[in-house]
């Protein structure tokens, strides 16, 4: 099967989605990221791997956090970084995506980090760039956000190394969440035996069971005895029409409160991809509580993105 993420030797050429990423490459990325965690704790928080390379963050959709973590990751690898907010730039003057990309190629960019509100945008760009350029999908529509999925499983592996023995619950707006899709693929690939999704019917894709998850509509049942609670952000900006009565009512039924968290295993960890809506999907007492690993997720996210970029940029000599 043609896999646009891999080159003819089976090595990673682009990172577009976790779906279709072989297990060995997924584990390679996680193992490599272990080496990058320590870089931030040194006197010089930089390694020279991407010296002389130019990384372009092309964001057709705003995301300060994702862009910032990619930018820090690239800079810690010694790359030069160019940030383009295309939503406020030439696309509003009518330029096509490929014209934007071709202009950056003419400026000798080496890697593109692409965020777009439409599913498939990163694939599209990857198919049009010359072979020495790599594309990283930093979120496309409802489809995928692979580095978020990778950093989530990296964080889980740090706290719960026995992946084959875990019960994981993903809670909230699965329908609009590319993060949930990437997480489910990553967890499945790594052999997590039980993945649950907990959400109101209106916020679940119709065929969600086909992804290999168990569906719950009740927090008390769904959270019982889980090792990991992965909260999702309620994506108000993607909602058209009335999928929810109100955010207050969502919190009443699906918000993660200390009382509900108590139903999970006592050492369960709580995760959130950010940005959090406090009092909508998560109570502040949980977000700031001792089971929360939300800030370590951010720190590990940089190491994981460094690993992806370092794997993509190396060994490209003809």
């Amino acid at each position: 099967m043609y896999n646009p993420q891999l080159n003819a030797q089976g090595q990673l050429q682009h990172l577009l989605s976790i779906e279709g990423l072989p297990k060995r490459l997924l584990i390679d990325i996680l193992d490599t990221a272990e080496s990058f965690v320590g870089v931030a704790e040194r006197e010089v928080k930089k390694v020279p791997l991407l010296r002389g390379k130019t990384v372009c963050n092309i964001f057709f959709e705003n995301s300060t956090r994702t862009r910032t973590t990619f930018e820090i990751a690239a800079k810690r690898l010694s790359a030069d970084v160019l940030n383009l907010n295309v939503s406020t730039s030439s696309q509003s003057k009518g330029e096509t995506i490929l014209d934007t990309v071709n202009n950056l190629i003419a400026m000798h960019a080496d890697m593109f980090v692409v965020r777009h509100q439409q599913s498939g945008a990163a694939h599209f760009i990857a198919q049009h760039v010359p072979p020495h350029i790599s594309v990283i999908n930093a979120g496309d529509g409802r489809h995928a956000h692979p580095t978020q999925g990778l950093l989530d499983v990296f964080t889980i592996r740090k706290y719960k190394p026995e992946m084959h023995n875990l019960r994981v619950a993903i809670v909230g707006d699965v329908l609009h969440s590319r993060v949930a899709r990437s997480e489910i693929h990553a967890l499945t690939t790594l052999g997590v035996p039980e993945i649950r999704v907990i959400a109101p019917r209106t916020l679940l894709p119709t065929d969600v069971e086909k992804l290999g998850v168990q569906v719950y509509h009740d927090m008390a049942q769904g959270l019982k005895d889980v090792d990991v609670v992965m909260m999702l952000r309620l994506q108000n900006e993607r909602m058209a029409g009335a999928l929810l009565p109100s955010t207050q009512e969502f919190f009443q039924t699906f918000g993660l409160t200390p009382e509900r968290l108590a139903l999970a295993k006592p050492d369960a960890i709580v995760m959130h991809p950010g940005p959090m809506n406090r009092g909508v999907e998560i109570d502040s007492a949980v977000a700031d509580g001792k089971q929360s690993v939300i800030l370590p997720q951010v720190t590990y996210g940089i190491a994981v993105r460094m690993a992806v970029m370092a794997i993509l940029a190396g060994g490209n000599a003809a």
Partner: peptide, 11 residues
């Protein structure tokens, strides 16, 4: 991360 053969051989 400091080897001089990264560009040829990768990480």
């Amino acid at each position: 991360m400091y080897r001089d053969d990264y560009a040829q051989r990768g990480l």
